[in-house]
Amino acid sequence: MVRINGSDIDAAGKTLDVYLKEADIDRTRIAVEINGKILPKADYGKYVFADGDNCEIVNFVGGG
C-alpha cells in the first residue's frame, strides 16, 4: 500500500505517471512530495512507488 494524500492506495509498483493518468490528475497543476522530499517533474515517469511510501500530491487550483 502507498499512502497518497492520507489514503491507502494500491499503487506499489506503479510509476507516478501511471498513477496520475489513472487518477485523472493534471500534472501541470501539481507538486509531488514523496516521504517529505520533492519529486522533480522530470522523474515522474521514472519513480516507482514502493510499499509504505508516503506521497503528498498538492493539487493547485486557480484564483488569486
Binding site: I30, P40, V58, F60, V61, G64
Partner: peptide, 25 residues
C-alpha cells in the same frame, strides 16, 4: 494553477532552504 505549480516546483527543487508559502482554493 499552472503558475502556482511551476513556482512551487522551482522553489522546492532548487531552493530547499527557502520557505515557500502558497495560496490555493
Amino acid at each position: 494553477a499552472e503558475s502556482k505549480a511551476m513556482l512551487a516546483n522551482h522553489i522546492l527543487e532548487n531552493h530547499p532552504g527557502k520557505t515557500l508559502i502558497t495560496g490555493s482554493g
